[in-house]
């Protein structure tokens, strides 16, 4: 990897799976729409859960004769049409399958999903299913930049990855120090990430990375890593 002095591409053409949503207050929300594969797995899980539920209820209700079959029809209706809607609206956009895959449904602007949108997107499953086994939904999902199926497009909803709380990273021990130059946010983050991810990088790679900044930091390449760790400590502040 030779050092490059060529200007990088403008950020707008860079491909990313994150969507920026700007709130009226000027805050950028980062949404990460989920693609076909996790969604297909979540749907399969939901399908299995519903199947098991219907099987158990069917066996129980078959003890009750005609009343049972009547009740079973009602349950069938509820499970078929309301399972997704109720879970999505009442459980923060997560059906059990989505919960297991770490997904949730929100509106396009990141707000929690409403009754109308949830009903619409789940009613339109029957369009997505055409002509067989969710073909239209698959094609729409693969072709849409935010992986929306037709129901999502109609209802203005988005299936996104939930933000998971991450464990607090451990920084290597070093004497905290102030950075000798002005650093913008991205650069501060990179230095912090360098210290945080030290455990997952090999020794040689760490030295190579730190060596990149040895010249601007005015230290020998061997000492650059310790220096960077110190700067990271300083950026993190007292902890």
């Amino acid at each position: 990897m030779s050092p490059s002095l060529q200007p990088s591409l403008p950020t707008s053409t860079l491909l990313d799976n994150r969507h920026h949503v700007e709130t009226p207050e000027g805050i950028d929300l980062l949404l990460r729409p989920a693609g076909v594969i996790p969604r297909a797995l979540a749907f399969t899980l939901d399908l299995l859960i519903r199947g098991a539920l219907l099987l158990v209820l069917g066996l129980l209700l078959s003890l009750l004769g005609n009343l049972g079959s009547g009740l079973l029809l009602i349950v069938l209706f509820l499970v078929n049409w309301w399972y997704m809607v109720l879970f999505e609206v009442l459980n923060q956009g997560r059906s059990p399958g989505k919960q297991m895959l770490g997904l949730r449904v929100v509106h396009d602007d990141g707000t929690p999903i409403s009754w109308g949108a949830s009903l619409l997107r789940n009613l339109l499953r029957f369009v997505d299913m055409l002509p067989f086994a969710y073909c239209l939904g698959l094609i729409s999902s693969l072709a849409h930049p935010a992986f929306k199926r037709l129901g999502d497009i109609a209802a203005g909803t988005l299936v996104v990855y939930r933000e998971q709380a991450e464990p607090r990273p451990n920084l290597p021990d070093a004497e905290p120090e102030r950075p000798p130059m002005r650093l913008d946010l991205q650069e501060q983050r990179a230095i912090l990430a360098f210290a945080e991810r030290a455990g997952s990088l090999s020794q040689a790679r760490r030295e190579e990375l730190a060596g990149l900044l040895a010249e601007p930091l005015q230290v020998l390449p061997e000492q650059a890593e310790a220096r960077l760790n110190g700067i990271a400590r300083g950026l993190l502040g007292a902890s």
Binding site: M1, P3, S4, L5, S8, M181, L183, Q186, E187, R189, A190, A193, F194, R197, S200, L201, R205, L209, L212, L213, E215, P216
Partner: peptide, 18 residues
């Protein structure tokens, strides 16, 4: 594994400073 994202920012930082 190789912290490409960090390398990218470090390269830019070095370019800026030098």
């Amino acid at each position: 594994l190789e912290a490409w994202d960090i390398e990218l920012v470090f390269r830019r930082l070095r370019q800026r400073l030098t």
